[in-house]
Amino acid sequence: MNPRVLIVDDDEDLLDTLRRLLERFGYTCLTAASGAAAIAVLDALSPDLVVTDLHMPGTDGLAVARRARQAVPPIPVVVITAYPTRRMEQELQAVGGAIHLSKPFANADMVDAVRRALGSRDSGALTTR
């Protein structure tokens, strides 16, 4: 079965673009337009990977990442952000680690990050970029 990827972003256009991109590369995509919706899907459907925007109104990407990493077994996370900082890296480490990508990203880089994240699922280790 194709790995299931949960894509989270409050920007519908980006959500749709990522869905189309990842579907091309053989992933089954679930989408959520808010952090709260994402957590609901996480709990209900246990996807294999979460790709989430970091800055969202309400429940943000960090909370989604935390929830994903608290699952048993922990779900790998790719975080997209327009503004990478050391503090953000530290926060991601604190919630259990995530791969992060800066906006704007090349599609190839997104696909690569997804692959690495899914690969880490088996090894258990997750490194930030």
């Binding site: 256009d13 673009t17 990522l18 189309r20 991109l21 327009a82 906006k103 704007p104 090349a106 599609n107």
Partner: peptide, 20 residues
């Protein structure tokens, strides 16, 4: 710049997709 990066990201991704 931060505000711009968001829509630029979407545009670039989408165009890349369309080119693919």
């Amino acid at each position: 710049a931060h505000e711009i990066n968001n829509p630029i990201g979407v545009i670039l991704s989408r165009i890349e997709l369309m080119l693919m």
